[in-house]
Amino acid sequence: MANMGIEILAFILTISGWILISSTLPIDYWKVSSIDGTVITTATFWSNLWKTCVTDSTGVSNCKDFPSMLALEGYIQVCRGLMIAAVCLGFFGAILALVGMKCTKIGGSDRVKARIACLAGLNFLLGGLSSMTACSLYAHRITSEFFDPTFVAQKYELGAALFIGWAGSALCILGGAVFCFSMSEGGTTTTRVGYTYSGAASFLSSRIKPQHEAADVRSSRGKGIPPKQFDKNAYV
């Protein structure tokens, strides 16, 4: 029962993390223009992995999609690939977790279900690490440009999507680790030493032995052989 509760908790953590990671892809604010040192702000620039936008003081936004994938900067391409990989790994991990959990009726024996659950935990771990790497790489680019005194272009600050991605990655990593640990404990089998129960044989022998002794006494009397006499200390 305790192991089942642990795996349900791990499933909730991983699914919550996967939903947060998936929600970061369409979120607009991966980076927002910095207002540090600016007295009057007439426009706010922000962008994500797919487009860059500007919002004026009246609240009207104009967006422009990135024209070519091959013309993108390298870190954006890497972040795209890592985030898509994290979403796919989380999807397959959720399916494997449903099959491998002990509270479900599919998956086969306990040993097979434990292996499937461990594989699901590994998928969530890899997905969380991929998302963590993507968000950290994007944040590193923003901070390096912000603190670079020679960078004269528009500087940006960390957007809300990065914090959501970090939170989802942490949940996936934590839940995947709990999944692997709990399922590995549940899937191990202890080797049992075989014991031979001789109680029934002892009972039967104790019932049969007096009968044989009585038969021997009767046969010895019939042949004129005196029965054996045992001293009182013979069995000491």
Rank of each mutant, 00 (worst) to 15 (best):
E157C: 01
S68I: 11
I116S: 04
S136R: 06
D148K: 00
L171K: 02
D110R: 10
V87W: 07
R141S: 02
M101R: 08
M132D: 02
D110T: 12
K155I: 01
L137D: 13
T150C: 00
A170Q: 06
F66H: 13
A153S: 09
L72Q: 13
H140D: 09
C172V: 00
K113Q: 14
A97Y: 08
L129Y: 04
M83F: 07
A94W: 15
F92C: 08
A161S: 12
R80K: 15
L98W: 14
L158E: 02
C135V: 09
F163M: 03
D110K: 11
G168K: 04
I173F: 11
G159W: 03
V60F: 13
D148M: 00
V152T: 06
F179K: 11
S136L: 08
L162M: 07
Y138K: 06
T143M: 07
L126Y: 05
Y156C: 02
L98V: 13
G90L: 04
F181H: 04
N62D: 15
T150D: 04
C103G: 11
K105V: 10
G108Y: 14
S130A: 15
L119P: 01
E145P: 01
L96M: 15
C180Q: 08
N62K: 15
F163E: 02
M83S: 14
F92S: 07
F147E: 01
A177I: 09
Q77P: 00
A161F: 06
G175N: 10
L137K: 10
A167N: 04
L126R: 09
K64M: 05
F124L: 08
F124Y: 14
E157A: 01
G121Y: 06
F66Q: 06
G168Q: 05
R111I: 15
R111M: 13
F151A: 01
I95V: 15
C79Y: 02
G81L: 08
G165F: 02
L89H: 06
A114D: 06
Y75T: 12
S61L: 10
A85L: 15
L162A: 06
I106P: 03
E145C: 01
A153I: 01
V178M: 15
L72M: 15
A114L: 05
V99F: 15
K64C: 01
L72Y: 01
A94P: 10
G81C: 07
G107K: 07
G93D: 10
G121R: 10
G90P: 03
G100A: 12
F181I: 14
R111W: 10
I95G: 06
H140R: 05
V87E: 05
F151G: 00
T150S: 04
A139L: 06
W166E: 03
N62V: 15
A134R: 05
S109K: 03
G121Q: 07
K102G: 12
F66S: 09
